[in-house]
Design a protein around this nucleic acid. Structure first.
Length: 418
DNA sequence: ATCGGCTCGCGCAA
DNA sequence: TGCGCGAAGCCGAT
């Protein structure tokens, strides 16, 4: 008996009756084969309609402020998916360009009958979905493969703070924090031959900043993600409660780059943490970060279109920030000075340098880092722009709802007390 | 260092 | 309508 994807994970972007023909999963945010509800659902449809199944990834020539560091991390993960899909009789296609630019022709050429995609609350993915939907005439469904509790299901509005979403999440966990079925090989062959993907050519198509180099001590991909999880379960979890907020210790999980690219499932991490025993305080603190705070960030971006601007802050926060627009700054720095870690503050410079060199900043330092940018620039709008620019350009886990929500918290009091 | 008063909107209980 | 409460609180008095 197969476990079907929960209907509450599925949202019809474009309703319609599927005709016979191939099922296509347009993979975007959830770049993995294991524990992926969008892939499982697509596989389920292919079984029901006795159809071939393919997976496509559309490589946009640029994505927000992503640089070669993040594209490299992502492309290495996608290479693993290309080879991994072979044993499931599912071809992997890489198209160069954004989905609304390149998918309609592909769908037409291959007679695709239904399209499945994964869920992201970010404006860029939502707008790709909408633009694509009006260009094609087949049904399109979105599956929330990223959240343990689907974002559209847990709440239909912008939550005020963690304490308003937390009880909803805890009530729903019993139903959603369940084991995944294993993906099985598809029974129906995709017609035609496939060329091996030319990854070098794909990299050359990018119009991005190539000077931010890949990092060497975080290995990309689904296998590396699982290894990092196993290491955390073995060595890190027991010290998590005590060490996580000390930037001089290695007390955090290090899983956020993998979570950001969907190279590991949060639900998988939660299941494995729940299998451990004896570190209840650490486990519950970690699950609060992994589930409540992460899914609160998705909720913020889904229901607040101004998640990356001043207008997304509460009235009381905008009032306060407006009242202090002309306060004298003891230090005022340009974006370039901040980017090059040229401030008077050794601690801030160290955090900034850590991010530039390693692609991550300790979570506790991120608060200090962002709040000082507000203090040392001439307007909250400028502070927000600079924080987002730096975060998106250097952090492996940038360009993520967590980043936008975290920066909005630091600069605009989002999810904080008034 | 510690303490108490304070913000203001949400959500539950009554 | 009242009341308790909030991610790593804020601030001034002692």
């Amino acid at each position: 008996m197969k476990i079907a994807a929960d209907h509450r994970r599925i949202y019809n972007i474009k309703p319609g009756k599927p005709s016979p023909g191939p099922v296509l999963y347009w993979m975007s945010r959830d770049q993995r084969l294991a524990d992926n509800w969008a892939l499982l659902y697509a596989r389920q449809l292919a079984e029901r309609y006795k159809s071939p199944l393919g997976v496509v990834f559309c490589l946009a020539t640029k994505f927000l402020d992503a640089s070669w560091r993040q594209y490299h991390f992502m492309i290495e993960g996608l290479k693993e998916i290309e080879s991994g899909l072979k044993k499931f009789n599912i071809p992997f296609f890489l198209l160069l360009g954004s989905a609304p630019e390149v998918l309609p022709a592909f769908i037409k050429k291959h007679g695709v009958a239904q399209l499945i995609t994964d869920f992201s609350p970010l404006k860029i993915k939502q707008s790709w979905d909408a633009k694509l939907a009006i260009k094609i005439d087949i049904p399109v469904s979105e599956v929330d493969a990223h959240n343990v509790i689907p974002a559209r299901y847990i709440s239909d509005k912008k939550e005020f703070a963690a304490y308003t979403i937390r009880p909803k999440i805890h009530r729903a966990l019993g139903e959603f924090l369940t084991e995944f079925p294993k993906i099985e090989a598809n029974k129906f062959d995709w017609p035609g031959k496939f060329l091996k993907i030319d990854w070098a050519n794909a990299a050359q198509s990018l119009k991005i900043n190539m000077s931010v180099q890949p990092v060497s001590d975080i290995q990309p991909g689904e296998k590396a993600a699982r290894a990092a999880l196993d290491k955390f379960l073995r060595d890190g979890l027991k010290k998590y409660e005590a060490d996580r907020n000390d930037p001089t210790r290695d007390g955090q999980s290090g899983l956020s780059p993998y979570l950001h690219f969907g190279q590991i499932s949060a639900q998988r991490i939660a299941l494995e943490v729940n299998k451990t025993r004896g570190h209840e305080k650490s486990s519950s603190a970690f699950l609060e970060e992994l589930i409540v705070r992460r899914e609160l960030a998705d909720n913020f971006c889904l229901y607040e279109p101004n998640y990356d601007s001043f207008d997304g802050f509460h009235d009381w926060a905008r009032t306060t920030l407006n009242n202090h627009r002309h306060d004298k700054r003891t230090h005022a720095y340009t974006r370039s000075q901040l980017e090059r870690a040229k401030t008077h503050d050794d601690l801030w410079n160290a955090a900034q340098t850590e991010m530039v060199l390693t692609g991550k900043m300790h979570g506790f330092m991120r608060m200090y880092w962002a709040k000082k940018i507000l203090e040392w620039t001439t307007s909250p709008e400028q502070a927000l722009d600079i924080a987002i620019y730096l975060n998106d350009k250097y952090e492996l886990d940038g360009r993520d709802p967590n980043g936008y929500a975290g920066i909005a918290w630091a600069i605009g009091g989002v999810h904080d007390r008034a």
